[in-house]
Amino acid sequence: MFGDMMNMMGKLKETQKKVEETKKRLDSVLVDETSSDNKLKVTLTANRTIKSVEIDDELLEDKEQLKDYLILTLNKAIEKATKINEAELAATAKEGMPNIPGMDMFK
């Protein structure tokens, strides 16, 4: 039994390491989102770090319109990045879960 527990602990540590590696890799996965009229484009990582924002000069003339565009486009980009992030981390965690009796609901 003690050997099984040590084996499970080793498997959990290995999975934790893989999750951390996945998080680092997600820093290089870029997500682009563009407004419907292409006046605003944002790029962020799958870890939801903003990398760039491109703004059409026309939007710079209307502060309120620019705010609206930023809110809509950033929220869409964050939603996309979150879905990628969660799917990747869930797959990594699921792959490395040890076989613990009664915990098969996660598989």
Rank of each mutant, 00 (worst) to 15 (best):
M1W: 08
F2L: 14
F2C: 06
G3H: 13
N7M: 09
N7H: 11
M8Y: 11
M9K: 00
G10P: 00
K11F: 04
K13V: 03
K13F: 06
E14W: 12
K17C: 04
K17H: 12
V19Y: 11
V19A: 05
E20I: 07
E20V: 08
E21I: 04
E21M: 13
E21H: 09
T22N: 10
T22C: 15
R25F: 12
L26R: 03
L26E: 04
D27M: 13
V29R: 11
V29D: 08
L30N: 07
L30M: 15
L30Y: 11
V31A: 05
E33K: 13
S35I: 09
D37P: 02
D37F: 08
D37I: 07
D37S: 06
N38E: 15
N38Y: 11
L40Y: 01
K41Y: 08
T45E: 02
A46F: 11
A46Y: 08
S52E: 02
E54V: 14
E54M: 12
I55E: 06
E58K: 15
E58N: 07
K63S: 14
K63H: 09
Q65T: 14
K67S: 14
D68R: 01
D68L: 07
T73Y: 13
L74D: 08
N75Y: 02
K76T: 11
K80S: 06
A81H: 01
A81W: 02
I84W: 01
I84T: 12
I84E: 08
N85R: 15
N85V: 03
E86K: 14
A87H: 11
E88W: 12
E88N: 13
A90L: 13
T92N: 06
T92E: 05
E95T: 09
P98R: 09
P98I: 01
I100L: 14
G102E: 14
M103H: 03
F106S: 00
F106Y: 02
K107W: 10
